[in-house]
Amino acid sequence: MKKPKFGVAVFPGSNCDFDAYEALKILDADVSYVWHEESNLDKFDVIVLPGGFSYGDYLRTGAIAQFSPLMKSLRDFIDKGKFVLGICNGFQILLEAKILPGAMLTNKDLKFICRYVYIRVENVNTPFTSAYKKSEVLRIPIAHHSGNYYATEEMLRKIENNGQVVFRYCNENGEVDEKSNPNGSLNNIAGIINEKGNVLGMMPHPERACENILGSEDGKKIFVSLLNSAVGQLLP
């Protein structure tokens, strides 16, 4: 059977690319790195935009990376219905490129936050979350300075009504409250999907939560879901 091909994007300043690669290797996926200057993405079925500090976070997080050849080709890739997962800085890049709605602001307490949080899976009918149970609570790390999700009222209403909010910060029991919101994100939003349902952006790092020896395995099912979805897409 033909295996789906994963590409992990590498921008100057990406630093979670190895982790994303490793998370996919654990699942025996066919994965390789893609340099940001690459404009031919034809051989790939899934692109992962990893976390890090592309272009030093100059101007705004993700603002410069959106103009790379890879990102220009990514629009066609997305139009074809192929899957894109943006993690942390990858999410910020997708917002700046206006592929996903909204923007990131500096965390409300102005601090870089690097710790475990809990998130609740709000939508399991996506190619990225199908292996989870509805409202499953994940223990997963965040590591960011600009993860304070903002959207205009109209955008927010739209993504809420469409079920595009895929993850929300919550407490250990899955209750979404102000106390469990680490960064000030509107409606505790930790991850959203595009209208078409093939692009997911999330601030928490599932690739750092794929092996119990590293503290949590709760992020693994994102890659399991994605692999299953990509295999499904290759079937005739």
Binding site: L59, A63, F67, L95, E96, A103, L105, Y150, A151
Partner: peptide, 8 residues
């Protein structure tokens, strides 16, 4: 296009 993000 670049210097400002019109969302915020």
């Amino acid at each position: 296009k670049l210097l400002a993000n019109p969302v915020i």
